[in-house]
Computed example of a mutant assay.
Amino acid sequence: MSNAKDGDAVKIHYTGTLDDGSVFDSSDGRDPLAFELGSGQVIKGFDDAVRGMIVDEEKTVTIAPENAYGVASDENVITVPPDQVPPEMNPSKGDKLQLMAPNGQPIPVTVVDVTDEGVTLDANHELAEWLVKQGMPFRTAHHRVGSLVAWCNDNAKPMNELTLAEMQISVPEAKEECTQLFDPVASVNARDIFGATAPNQVKKQIVYWQAKLDEEAGE
């Protein structure tokens, strides 16, 4: 019986758990996960674990974050103090806004909480947002999307060209509607709040600033 090697098409059943023993993903009740070993279709630690196995072999491995979905970080979630929130904005949970990075790069964010202490913004990917709304823990969603982004980078695949099957390699829970999350036009239109990118919001800003310029020109 031969051992699994790079280039082989393999099918496996698996259960993924966190350090506390809680299950974050499993093929239980589903078809086995099928992929080409060593092709980058799964996280590196998964490839490494399966390489050398034989049919019907079982094993337990611990995969380091750098060989999985990356080290979890809360850097993409920030809380803006109330005095730094424009009074005309009046944000609500679920609103999609846009921040501006120092280099001028727009950063789409989602309002995840509004309290007396400020407005909490999440700048993680929209697919991660979708997974969280389905009930997945934030850290798990962040890891899954990180794996998908890595797969796209390794395979030179633009995210807006992903098929559902390709998306499900890293995010088995993904549904057909998720493929629309990567559509640039849909993403722009979804941010329909003060200062954001939806066309009607842009038009409002144009009208506002044109009026300001006309006012200054008349002084």
Rank of each mutant, 00 (worst) to 15 (best):
S2M: 06
A4F: 08
A9N: 12
V10M: 01
I12R: 09
Y14P: 09
T15E: 14
G16T: 05
T17C: 06
L18F: 00
L18R: 05
D25T: 15
G29D: 12
R30G: 15
P32E: 06
S39Q: 13
I43P: 10
K44H: 11
A49W: 08
V50H: 02
G52F: 09
M53S: 02
M53Y: 06
M53N: 01
M53D: 01
V55I: 11
V55A: 07
D56E: 13
D56S: 03
E57Y: 12
E58T: 12
A64W: 13
Y69L: 10
Y69F: 08
G70N: 10
V71M: 14
S73H: 10
I78Y: 02
T79V: 00
V80R: 04
Q84G: 00
P86W: 01
P87E: 04
N90I: 05
S92N: 15
D95P: 07
K96V: 04
K96W: 14
K96F: 08
L97T: 03
A101W: 04
N103Q: 12
V109S: 00
V109D: 02
T110E: 12
T115H: 07
N124C: 09
A128T: 14
W130V: 01
W130F: 05
V132R: 15
V132W: 03
V132S: 13
P137H: 05
F138D: 02
T140E: 02
T140M: 02
H142A: 06
R144C: 15
G146Q: 14
G146N: 13
S147T: 14
L148F: 08
V149L: 04
V149A: 02
A150L: 03
N153K: 10
N153M: 08
A156Y: 05
K157M: 15
E161D: 07
A165R: 11
M167Y: 12
Q168I: 15
S170L: 03
P172W: 09
A174P: 07
C178S: 15
L181I: 00
P184C: 13
D192K: 05
I193G: 09
F194Q: 06
G195Q: 14
A196E: 01
T197S: 10
I206V: 03
I206C: 00
E216T: 15
A217C: 09
A217Q: 11
E219Y: 00
